[in-house]
Amino acid sequence: MQTLLARSFALLAREQPQAHARLLMPLAGLAVALKIDAEHFTVAFTSAQAHLRAVDGQESITVGTSRRTILEVLDDRRTLTEAVLSNAVEVVGPLELLLRAHEGLIRYVHAAVRCAGFPSLLHQLRLTCADNPERETEAHG
């Protein structure tokens, strides 16, 4: 996931630079710790880029979920709201920062659906889930 996410930001910066800049606006200054199945890493945002690094405990927001849940939301089998309310996506942080993170997420999706290279990344995400089914259920099965 970490690799795919890093590639997605690089792809947006290259193919959709304006949309990439717009998605960073609400996110600049935030560091989000992500726990996706067994992977644990941080995405830190500046006004110019998203940077992936190891978790250091200084993050303002933490998000925990599974690749299976991510695919369920992307495939509209459950809404993001349903996923949060059922704790399939756990988000922790100050409300004001969570609202900024949500705005950034929506801008990320708007950019992604306008980016020709994204279907290939989504396909690879599906392959990682198929390759490793036991890890899919690990966090939120």
Partner: peptide, 10 residues
Amino acid sequence: VPRVMALLAP
């Protein structure tokens, strides 16, 4: 459809 667009039109 595409399903992912439901995220942008909840």
